[in-house]
Amino acid sequence: MTQPERAALTSAGYVKVWRPGQILAMQGSPPASMFVVLRGWVKISATNYRGDDAPLAARGPAEIVGELAPISGLPRAATMSAIDEVHTLVVAREKFLGVLRAWPRIAEEFLRSAAIRLQESDRLRLESGGPDFPQRLAAVLLELSLQHSPDGDGNKQVDLHFNQGELASFARVSRSTLVRGLDELRKLGIVRTARQRVTIVRPHALRELAAGRPPSPREDRFD
């Protein structure tokens, strides 16, 4: 967006701080507002008809969440919750729609963002269906890393803000199977794990494994 477009959106809302675990908006609730993430990470999740809670994505600084429901006027299709302390710009539905009417190029950017996210979601479902689990897990992690850093250069470390249960849901496997897969990737030096986080430390090797090629050996450095 241009500076005047950003200013128009900013002036239509107000800043709110959310504590870790606090819900920004609940699945099925009225579409009262949309959010721009200024700081921190927001988890997007949804409950299916069996009552299973499945993560869909994590969104970070400068990303927009919860914008489709105010546009459609339908109840929210997912729950948005704060992973850590989150600062957001909150824009009420009527003011948001007013900005879109007054600034058509902002509406185009929102449409473009929605189309990209639909493609990401389709790719993630496709990648989670392969027969070889280490390769499948690498492909899922690679797709999630692209969602987190769409403009990254592909060689920097990427932090994925998901716990093991959430990653298991993405990969469509049990948690124990996911743990074994992550252990293999750790042994290859491709990932590092911590609470609520998986760090991809060798993105190039992850891409090779996702493509079905043996990853290049890591270069251990001794100081």
Results as ranks from 00 to 15, higher is better:
141 L>E: 00
106 I>W: 00
16 K>N: 10
56 L>R: 07
86 V>P: 00
215 P>D: 03
184 E>I: 12
39 R>C: 07
161 H>W: 06
25 A>D: 03
119 Q>P: 08
182 L>V: 02
55 P>C: 04
105 R>S: 13
180 R>A: 13
11 S>E: 10
38 L>Y: 05
214 P>M: 05
51 G>W: 01
175 R>W: 03
187 K>C: 13
116 I>K: 14
24 L>S: 03
187 K>E: 15
223 D>C: 14
38 L>M: 09
152 G>L: 04
26 M>T: 15
130 G>S: 07
17 V>S: 14
156 K>V: 15
134 P>T: 06
73 G>H: 03
104 P>D: 03
106 I>P: 00
115 A>F: 07
138 A>V: 02
143 E>H: 09
124 L>F: 03
79 T>Y: 00
159 D>S: 13
66 G>I: 01
50 R>Y: 08
211 A>L: 07
45 S>T: 05
190 I>W: 00
129 G>A: 14
141 L>I: 00
183 D>S: 15
170 F>C: 01
210 A>H: 01
182 L>M: 05
48 N>S: 06
149 S>G: 10
186 R>I: 10
26 M>V: 15
177 T>M: 08
9 L>V: 07
73 G>C: 06
163 N>M: 04
1 M>G: 12
36 V>F: 04
169 S>L: 07
112 R>D: 11
27 Q>A: 07
183 D>K: 14
179 V>K: 13
26 M>E: 15
164 Q>V: 12
46 A>P: 00
201 V>S: 09
44 I>A: 14
117 R>H: 08
163 N>S: 09
103 W>T: 12
73 G>N: 04
123 R>W: 05
114 A>E: 02
184 E>P: 06
161 H>A: 12
62 A>L: 12
217 P>N: 06
187 K>V: 13
221 R>G: 15
177 T>W: 06
150 P>N: 06
26 M>K: 15
70 P>I: 01
149 S>Q: 12
74 L>R: 13
55 P>D: 03
109 E>Q: 10
187 K>Q: 13
187 K>M: 12
208 E>T: 07
67 E>S: 10
19 R>A: 14
66 G>C: 02
155 N>V: 15
